[in-house]
């Protein structure tokens, strides 16, 4: 399980890094705005989902049983 999480974290970091590099290149005038936007369209969804999956609750471990109000 931890292995899967590591992959997800790596993927999240990777897409995050790509977006950051894109931002720097775009600010530096190397990458056109449309190119940066294309990078964002591809990387942003993956980044969001990976970050969410990475920080989500553990899949094992006890759940708190429902004992009524």
């Amino acid at each position: 399980m931890t292995k899967k999480k590591d992959i997800l974290r790596a993927l999240g970091l990777l897409t995050g890094a790509i977006m950051l590099v894109g931002l720097i290149l775009q600010q530096g005038g190397i990458l056109p705005l449309a190119g940066y936007e294309a990078v964002l369209v591809v990387c942003f969804p993956i980044f969001v989902i990976c970050v969410f999956l990475w920080w989500m609750a553990r899949e094992h471990g006890e759940d708190i049983p429902f004992i009524g109000y």
């Binding site: 936007e37 964002l40 369209v41 591809v42 942003f44 989902i49």
Partner: peptide
């Protein structure tokens, strides 16, 4: 499909 959903609407925004 979740990725596509986020992707298409970010594209629409741009």
């Amino acid at each position: 499909v979740v990725l596509v959903a986020i992707g298409i609407w970010s594209a629409a925004l741009f």
